[in-house]
Design a protein around this nucleic acid. Structure first.
Lengths: 345, 345
DNA sequence: TCCTAGCGTGAAAGCGCATTCAGAAAGCGC
DNA sequence: GCGCTTTCTGAATGCGCTTTCACGCTAGGA
């Protein structure tokens, strides 16, 4: 950019007939400035439509007012909810948010962190499940650690047992366990699970919790009853279709994500199965839309917006040197009409 | 931030035993550098975990690699869809996106533009309906114009008859008219409309188009059959409830937004009315979830992701001095099961 | 062999700002 | 009224980088 040069502080100072230093002080209010001078400066700035150059400010030692947020996909309601909380908190703190979507590409994630480092963002937030992959964890750490040494704050939502960062962790395991208890209490004994990629910590946790919950009622989940698919609506649809094609042998299906559950619901409807009469269906996350599905979805509610707010708070509240903080956010089982006692076989 | 000073180019140059200029050139590849020197520089940079300071780069005249996007609410599926397209395009162009949500507060919008100006963002994208408010338009222009004079690119999605900017415009009016034609063709004659705030250009356009489409079939829409509410799921719910309380006198309800339609659907269900047996319901936007509702929603499909990609393209493709470009994006009526011929009264 | 291009390199200027430092003006006590 | 402290102002410095600018070197032609 920069066709015509920008209006600079120097222009303002000249217009107001004061020194550059005085103009700077008048604008920032850091030091007392004689009131008539300040008036002149403000008037000049206003008249020239002056906007300080944030790069110059940052370079000259002023505060950096931006935070970076990296998530998998903004258009996924789960991340959209969290982003909303992040932005609300950022707004209150007067911070500018740089949001990037990685579309689940680990390489892109690293690249974005590097860019945010270059921007000297005051904090970087990683939102979303991590990969269970040594190589990637190492590459990530290689970006994160120098950034932290430079004074950067890092906070994450979910995942990351290896990274030394503050984190907000949804209680995926316990939430899934609770859900399992609820479902077995309703009388279900034969389950199928629509899982996301097993490389994601979130999937692993929810799966494990669910199994544990089932185990308490003496129910086992056969590996053959778990279908793995991508973490999307279409992934859920495909997984459910496959399950159906195999000849579904379950009274209740648990999709590890609401988004997947939506796809599953569609697949069931297309196959002429009705929920919950023929089969019960449960999800996880409680994204806003699922209460409006027909039938409304039983799920585990996560306070998405609050997740976003908390992670931002962690990032803003300075925590240098101290050990990393962990905020656990419990999930709450919300029973709606998509699950009910199985009809006698 | 900045506890420990950052690694600077000077550190790298010293480590590699070359001058600062050479180090810069080696890293950027702008000029030929003797290969052994370049190797040394690269090695040193890598070893020191050097990341260039983007602020210094920008200040020194390097390219600015960020664009700002301002929308009403990231968590709204409509904006989420557009954001997705924007980010995909930004990613391809190697740009960093700063995304801000205004939560429909005009003041906040102005404030964000100012911050983006300060960041010397290479482009600013305004996504979402504008307000029909002289005062606000003036204030907006006062931010936008100096920015453009400084060489900044501005592009918007929808709205803004007064601003001299490139824009991508969904054909709200024509889309709504098409929808009206479709509905009258199905046999509907008595309509009600769930409108968003009348101060939004999007609402005005859709309303007008819908009326025009109805008029072609000789149907009029009484002002009393239009309920105004906020542009949200709950807004739609409230508006529908009010309509029901008044004694709904229509065979078909048009919600100007899919999100509102979802709320309306819930309200209808709660009131014991079934769609489309008792009343037909149509929306606008075709956000991803509506095809999974029960019944799937009839609506006007807008290519949301493409909207985002296009607006980004406009902003990136330089257009200095030339007249502003307008890209019209047609909507397509998608008939699903939420509408059908009214049952004889 | 000498001179001229031409390529690579390093020194230095400057991007726009905050801030330090020194000095001028103003206020105080005596 | 004089010297002192206290305020406020302006000149100058530096943040980290890109980019001239000028110079030294090698290669090629005469």
């Amino acid at each position: 950019m920069d066709d015509r040069p920008h209006v600079t502080l120097e222009d303002v100072a000249r217009e107001a007939q004061v020194s550059l230093a005085t103009a700077s002080r008048a604008l920032n209010g850091t030091t007392k400035v004689r009131s008539d001078l300040r008036e002149r400066v403000l008037a000049a700035a206003n008249q020239l439509a002056y906007t300080p150059n944030a790069h110059a400010q940052a370079l000259a030692g002023g505060a950096h007012r931006t935070v970076g947020v990296i998530c998998h996909d903004v258009s996924d309601p789960y991340f959209a909810g969290i982003s909303r909380g992040v932005m609300r908190a950022a707004d209150e703190a007067g911070l500018l948010v740089m949001l990037a979507s990685t579309f689940r590409d680990p390489q892109k994630e690293i690249a974005y962190i590097s860019m945010l480092r270059a921007q000297r963002a005051s904090a970087i937030l990683l939102v979303g499940s991590g990969f269970e992959d040594r190589e990637w964890e190492r590459a990530l750490a290689a970006e994160i650690e120098p950034y932290q040494r430079g004074g950067g704050q890092v906070a994450v939502v979910s995942r990351h047992r290896t990274l030394r960062v503050d984190s907000v962790q949804p209680e995926n395991r316990e939430g899934a366990a609770q859900l399992a208890r609820t479902l077995t209490a309703q009388g279900h004994r034969r389950f199928a699970v629509l899982a996301g990629p097993r490389a994601l910590t979130t999937v692993v946790d929810r799966l494990r919790g669910f199994r544990e919950g089932l185990a308490e009622a003496g129910v086992e989940l056969a590996e053959s009853h778990i279908v793995e698919a991508s973490f999307t609506r279409d992934g859920g649809h495909a997984a459910m279709s496959e399950l159906l094609a195999r000849g579904l042998d379950a009274t209740c299906v648990f999709a590890v994500t609401d988004v997947m559950a939506m796809g599953a619901l569609a697949a069931l409807r297309e196959a002429g199965k009705s929920v919950p009469e023929d089969v019960s269906l449960a999800g996880f996350d409680d994204i806003p839309v699922v209460r409006d599905l027909a039938p409304p979805l039983t799920t585990v509610a996560l306070p998405l917006e609050e997740l976003g707010e908390k992670v931002m708070e962690l990032a803003v509240r300075d925590n240098r040197g101290k050990r990393s903080r962990i905020l656990r956010m419990p999930g709450t089982v919300v029973v709606r009409e998509s699950t009910r006692a199985p009809t006698a076989p």
